[in-house]
Every structure is written in C-alpha cells, then in structure tokens.
Design a protein around this nucleic acid. Sequence first.
DNA 1: AGGTTGTTTCGACGGATGTCGATATAGCGG
DNA 2: CCGCTATATCGACATCCGTCGAAACAACCT
Lengths: 104, 104
Amino acid sequence: MLHEPLGEQDAAELARMFKALSDPIRLRLLSLIASRQGEEVCVCDLTGPFDVSQPTISHHLKVLREAGLVGSERRGTWVYYRVLPAALARLSALLQAPTVGVSA
Amino acid sequence: MLHEPLGEQDAAELARMFKALSDPIRLRLLSLIASRQGEEVCVCDLTGPFDVSQPTISHHLKVLREAGLVGSERRGTWVYYRVLPAALARLSALLQAPTVGVSA
DNA sequence: AGGTTGTTTCGACGGATGTCGATATAGCGG
DNA sequence: CCGCTATATCGACATCCGTCGAAACAACCT
C-alpha cells in the first residue's frame, strides 16, 4: 500500500516487476496469456500477433518470467505460459491503496 | 482489464505509465507523495530521503508528471506535487482483473 | 540416426535511460 | 535592484534495453 512510504528494498523489487510491464509488447503478451483465464498459452500462439521476430518474443517472455509475473512449463515440443495471479494482485493492491484513500 | 487482449494503442499508453513506475526512486517518490493522502508535498521534502542529486529528483518527478501519474503546482517559491488517483486506479484495475478471474 | 519444427540463447548494434555538474528560471526579501 | 533559495533544464557520459540474425537446444517423427 502506498499509505506508508516504500522501503528501499521493496521499491527495488517492485520496480523490477513494473519494469517488466513497461513495454507494449510485454503488456500485450501478458494480456494474451491472462485472457485465457487460468489456462495456459503456447508460445506458438504468441508469436503471430506481433511484428517482431520470434527470438524477440522469447526474450520478452523471459523478462516476464524472471519478474515473477508468469510461469512456464514445457509439455512435449511446446512451452506453455500462464499468469501468476499473486504477483499481479500485489501490484494491483499497491496502486489501489491511494485510490480508496481519495474516494472516501 | 486483462480479460480481453490489449490493443496496440492501449498497450503503448499503459506501457508508458508502467515505465514511469519502473524505477525504485520514482516508486519511492510516488509513495512519499501518496502517503500524504490528498495533500500536496513540497519538492523540498522529496530531495532529502535520497542519495541522488536534486536535478535527478527533478528529472524523476518530471517522468512521473509526463506519465500522468502526478500533478504539480507552483505556490510561491515552492512546487507541490500530488497524486492523480484516476491514473493509478486505472493501472490497478488492469492488474486486478485476472486475479478475480482466478479467485472464482 | 537424421530431419523437421518449436523454443531459447548468443553476439552485436542503435537508441533510450539514469546520473551528474553546471547553468538557467522563478519568486521572495532586503 | 541584487542576492538568496527553490526548482527546472541542459549537455555529457556510462549503462541498460529492444531488436535482429545466427546458432544452439529440445522433442517429435520416420
């Protein structure tokens, strides 16, 4: 919550997560994964909608994964990505706090 | 909401906002401003807690301002910053959506 | 085993970003 | 008007980031 100032460590960790969200392609990737609620999405379904090369998509998925926002699992030939809801919920709660403060 | 894939334009705009949150100093600045709910905070109160120079703080405040996350107003010698709750609420709602989807 | 497809890693390149010191602007007080 | 404090802008520099093509790795199929 933003009602108490963030410590340096928390700020550093949260900044890493927000940085993963700071690219349009990564945001769209995340929304594509999240829009299959709970289900997993194959990488092969994620490369089509974008104008960038497939290695670039793989790089962006890695960034999202290392930020703890998505998880991945290989099943056979394909790799499936899924959203990790707890991480998104944490960020959401952080930004929600000041809003309720003002809406009162 | 992340239940429908983001369009390119929306993604670009949202990415700009998240990018403003992707730096630890900016996150702490925002939390310092937000922790005074509704009130405004003088820049002179924001330079102290950090190890970086005053121009750097001014730069980060500019990034937050241009992202639409905070507003500023000059009153006499001092400049006061305040949170713009609607912007934070928008980001919060975006990240909240998949959570409720999974909690069901 | 060899070939084919899906995915990741590597190395390189150009552009963006955080930081600083120096300087400029804004407003107050004598 | 001049100096003083508060804040913003400028120019420079090192580092980081997104992107690509090429290559490596993984798993399937014959």
